[in-house]
Amino acid sequence: MYARPTLVELSNIWKSFGAVRALRGVSFDVRPGETHALVGDNGAGKTTLMKILSGVYRPDRGEITVAGEKVSFSRPRDSRDLGIEMIYQDFALAENLDIRSNIFLGRERRRKTMGGLLRVLDNRYMDTETRRVLASLDVDIDPGLKVRRLSAGQRQAVAIGRALAFDAKLVIMDEPTANLAIGKVEKLLELTERLRDLGIAVILISHRMDEVFSVADRLTVLRQGQVVGRFRSGELSESRISNLIARGLPDPMVRRGDL
């Protein structure tokens, strides 16, 4: 037997908020380039788990390894520096700024000027990079447009572009279809495929079975802070998974980490 290489591994993660035990010994892994769906009801612990992976929360117990190395994140920056990017449900964009400013917001590229005395924004670099990223997503928008003028789908592309501009290895998408019109969901799924083509792993947080089934390589089902199932896509029917989401019991196989 040999272990397949994992990109990110969370093992036996526990997290409580006061008396609420949000996560109770959750283990979860992502392989390079795969699309891994994390499904479960509201309050199952999906978002908490991902906030731990993106450095927003620190786990009470448990370990995170990235590319085989044990890591600890004390702030979102730490996780992002290792190539883990989160795409928020509301996209976390500043509507009054243009696309390039948003792509680089908080991580502006700067260059020295006046003999190294001053550090100014390197607008040319950021403009070129923004164009490159949008082109790699097959999105045709002018990087100088203010985000206020963009549709929800275009905003999402900008949010994904932000991840790509910094060589993400793993992109976490939190309920990516929640803010999209029905017709745009297809475009999103296309974007997800595109990320896969670029060799970027995706974690898809969702409670909608249909979209999960069409793109995910693997599925992990969370219920009440525990993993109740993990499957390759297509191994189980939608109804079976819905059943797990609602009534599943902790899966001993998953706890042992065999799958």
Binding site: P76, L93, A94, E95, L97, S101, G106
Partner: peptide, 13 residues
Amino acid sequence: AVGGNVESARTVG
């Protein structure tokens, strides 16, 4: 950015 959307600004660091 802070004036445009303080929460987004905070979120992205």
